[in-house]
Amino acid sequence: MAGSVALLLAACSSDDGDGGDGGSGDQPYTIGLSNGFVGSEWRTQMVDGLEEAFAEYEAEGVVDELVVESADTDVNGQIQQIRNLINRGVDAIIVNPNSETALDAVFREATGQGIEVFAIDQAVTSEDVTNVVIDQAEWARISADWLAGQVGQGGNVVVVNGIAGHPANEMRWGAAEQVFTDAGVNVLTVADGNWDQATGQQVMTNLLATYPDVDGVWTQDGMAEGVFRAVDAAGRLDRITISGEARVGFMRLWNDARATGFQSIGVVNPPGGAVSALHMAVNVLDGREFASGTIDGNTVHVPIPYTVDETTFDQYWGEAGSESDAYSLDGSLTRDEAADFFE
């Protein structure tokens, strides 16, 4: 399966006749970025990081132009973004998709024009596309493992999830639930906080009122800050353990509460995934094939860069503490690490 996808990718790049000035091993390449949501610092970091990495390749003559399509838009708008990139004659498109299914048809148009497509952050179902994403299950397992260790067997936890039915939420919770079951941790209830800090805080306040015997909370992303504030307001920070996140806003609260013995964990969900995808794109455009075992179907899992915990907190807080609250701790594959994914 992995081999056939790699062959398919190679075939796409080798018959690249009308995809602009590109082709297999025909540098310099033109790269397009399609991003359909600009309302978060995470996305801004994603675009900025990609531009930086691109500038390095540009200086070496490997690439010549980065066409950025980044605007708040719906699926129709993103289809038009991708069509514009196709008409611009790019060699590869890096896309942070607004939908895991609704762009499949336009991805087929792109690959039909000999263009390589890489999806980041959110995997898509289209087999024409190479997904370059972190393993959401692994991401969830790390913090769930830690929390299970903190509350111990027989401990009681509540869960504040993102949006029920959302693919990333299902993958994450599926993995975390398994961890809690295996560790003998009781999950009292699962609530949705819509990945929104304020909603997370409201939901947690209600949970605290309903469940007096909570030992821990497992939550995701920006909701950690809301959960922290709710627990803090109830004066129960000393008795309730919270799984956190690797964003400066939460780490600031964490830092202030450490004096009283508060501990947490933040698993990095890196905006730098776009940079990892750029390295992959250059390798594929150079005509290299994914090594067997590095690609599962059409999905490449990039490793989670690092985790902030009690032992590493000082180091990462020292590096990121001066950033704004919305800043996410980041990381991406180096070129050499990316090259290891290929034969």
Binding site: T73, D74, V75, I79, S99, A102, L103, A105, V106
Partner: peptide, 17 residues
Amino acid sequence: AILANTGSGDPFVGNEL
């Protein structure tokens, strides 16, 4: 037409139109 264009359903797809 939107369905033929996207190939899939989305519960927010038409609102901006």
